[in-house]
Design a protein around this nucleic acid. Structure first.
Lengths: 145, 145
DNA sequence: TGAAAACCTACTAAACTCATAGTATAATAG
DNA sequence: CTATTATACTATGAGTTTAGTAGGTTTTCA
């Protein structure tokens, strides 16, 4: 019932990008250094976020990544559903892929559907901006004029 | 982010026991047959439930299992925490075992703590009896006098 | 043309999942 | 006492997933 490192690192990377994007693009090596995560591993997570159109990219000199939207326009659910594949607690809930012949009289399916609902609702109730704000207030930046 | 078969089978077994315990003990082979789950695999799940004192057991002739308490006195959280080990979405939340040096200024920890909370609260809001009731009403037993 | 950066693909050790198999132990009927 | 029924315990294993490492390719710009 764990969120994998893939999802957790993706979230930390998105937060890092949100924090450090001034005008330009942020190089992955800087994210990796600050977050203490292997750059090579982050490289593998990036394409997932790219496919979901969560990032903008430039290559070459002074290239890097930046958020495609404002932090307030990402929910944690957006990021985690993309990287975790799905947040469904059982495979019978994953689209129409895993059809179960017993669905109609499965006593436990409504339970998992309900669990799925509370998980997604919780994660969609928090935006990247919310986490940034919370982080700043923790650092005492809430007294900055 | 999945509930494993261990947890799901445990839940189905508990429901089966709840449904079929008249006076006596229910043999595992009957549960296995009705639920279409390998009896040998269920045998491995049983000790987990036994250690958590969720079941009563007798061996030998007409032996088997029964619920230690009334269905209304089990929450799904009780059963799933026992079988899944923990429902925590990240290991830093698991007791004092996985201490993380960055806990104090970790921006994401409160998120996972909140997620953990909604998951546990949801699963603790449902009892075994609730699932039985829902099952019976679905089968049309709600019109029985 | 050379440096800096993203992009892409293959590989791997370790852990976990979902079982299967076999033997030992206990309880009861007859 | 012994055969039957049932749980208890331990070992093994195939397959998948996780969490990376490694190395080379392509793009951009000074």
């Amino acid at each position: 019932m764990m969120i994998s490192t893939r999802g957790r690192y993706a979230l930390r990377m998105m937060l890092d990008l949100a924090e450090y994007q001034g005008e330009g693009y942020v190089a992955l090596k800087d994210v990796a250094r600050r977050q203490e995560i292997s750059k090579k591993y982050l490289e593998q997570i990036i394409p997932i976020l790219n496919r979901a159109e969560l990032l903008q990219t430039t290559r070459g000199y002074q290239g890097g990544y930046r958020l495609a939207r404002k932090p307030v326009d990402y929910t944690l659910g957006d990021i985690l559903r993309a990287t975790e594949g799905s947040l469904a607690p059982v495979s019978c809930l994953e689209g129409d892929v895993n059809l179960c012949t017993k669905q109609a009289d499965c006593a436990t399916l409504p339970i998992w559907a309900g669990l799925d609902k509370v998980i997604n609702e919780y994660l969609d109730s928090i935006t990247l901006q919310d986490v940034l704000d919370e982080q700043n207030s923790r650092r005492g930046n809430d007294y900055v004029i």
